[in-house]
Each structure stands twice: as structure tokens, then as C-alpha cells.
């Protein structure tokens, strides 16, 4: 039994008829072609699929598209507003990535963290990103990038 869902993604409203088992991440990637959101572990561990659902970071591999019906979603593609978001700028400047696969999720989780805590300590950043895994183990520069972004966002 398919269901019609209407989801506003990065400010654009989309209506699709989907199977209830369709995951939000597949809705974004396969239905809308927004492939910036990656699928890593597909088991709620790695955080590569992190997006914002009504302003909160969630793992889109563990949310059904039907659960997001009527909601607002922001993906990595929707973060920049004419120019790079301070987090995107900071990940670039601090080289907060190696292969880049975890980066969209890292940035979306970091945006959630900074919205709740604009001035996090290093420990708070590491704890705030515990749900995001970097298999290149490039955490040092990721933390530095979040610190740099927090500074930029204060100005």
C-alpha cells in the first residue's frame, strides 16, 4: 500500500508516492537526486546520512520517508546560502576531511551541535560528534574545523 508524502527539502516542496518502507535517505538520493547525503553503514552507527529533520540532526537511514511527511528537511546541499556555510568553509580551511565520505554527515551533525551550544569545548565537540565515524580517522582536523566554525559564527 503506497502512500503519498510531501516533504520540503532545502526549501523546495516535493510530493511523491512511495512505499512505506522507503527510507528518508533513499527518498533524498533516489527520488530527488540529492546524493550529497551518503549511505555508510546503513545501520544507525556511522552518521554519514545525517540530515536535519525539522531542525534536528537525524540519521536518515533510520527514518522512513512516511515519517517525514509534512516535515522540513535540510541536507548538505541546502546548507550554503549564496556562499559556503561557516562549517563548510572551516572544514575546507582546516582540512577537516581526507576521503570526504563522512563530511556531509559531520557537517550536518556539527551544525546541530553549534545550534545548541555555540561555544563548545573540544570535549563537547568530540562527544557531540560521537555518532559520526571517520574511517580515515581524521578526527583531529574535524574538531579543529568545528572550533574554527564556532569562532566564525560568533562574528
Amino acid at each position: 500500500m503506497k502512500r503519498e508524502v510531501t516533504i520540503t527539502v532545502n526549501g523546495v516542496t516535493h510530493t511523491r508516492t512511495v512505499e512505506p518502507r522507503l527510507l528518508l535517505v533513499h527518498f533524498l538520493r533516489d527520488e530527488l537526486g540529492l546524493t550529497g547525503t551518503n549511505i555508510g553503514c546503513d545501520s544507525s552507527q556511522c552518521g554519514a546520512c545525517t540530515v536535519h529533520l525539522d531542525g534536528q540532526a537525524v540519521k536518515s537511514c533510520t527514518v522512513l520517508a512516511v515519517q517525514a511527511d509534512g516535515c522540513r528537511v535540510t541536507t548538505i546541499e541546502g546548507l550554503a546560502n549564496g556562499k559556503l556555510h561557516p562549517l563548510q568553509q572551516a572544514f575546507w580551511e582546516k582540512h577537516g576531511l581526507q576521503c570526504g565520505f563522512c563530511t556531509p554527515g559531520m557537517i550536518m551533525a556539527s551544525a546541530d551541535l553549534l545550534s545548541r551550544n555555540p561555544n563548545p569545548t573540544e570535549e563537547e565537540i568530540r562527544r557531540g560528534l560521537e555518532g559520526n565515524l571517520c574511517r580515515c580517522t581524521g578526527y583531529q582536523n574535524i574538531v579543529a574545523a568545528v572550533q574554527a566554525a564556532a569562532e566564525m559564527m560568533k562574528k
Binding site: 544507525s44 552518521g47 545525517t50 529533520l53 534536528q56 540532526a57 537525524v58 540519521k59 533510520t62 527514518v63 551533525a109 546541530d112 551541535l113 557531540g128 560521537e130 555518532g131 559520526n132
Partner: peptide, 9 residues
């Protein structure tokens, strides 16, 4: 519990 994204849901 879990991590921030898990706790949000």
C-alpha cells in the same frame, strides 16, 4: 543513550 542523532529520534 546512543548519540545526539539517536537521542533526537
Amino acid at each position: 543513550i546512543g548519540d545526539q542523532m539517536v537521542r533526537n529520534r
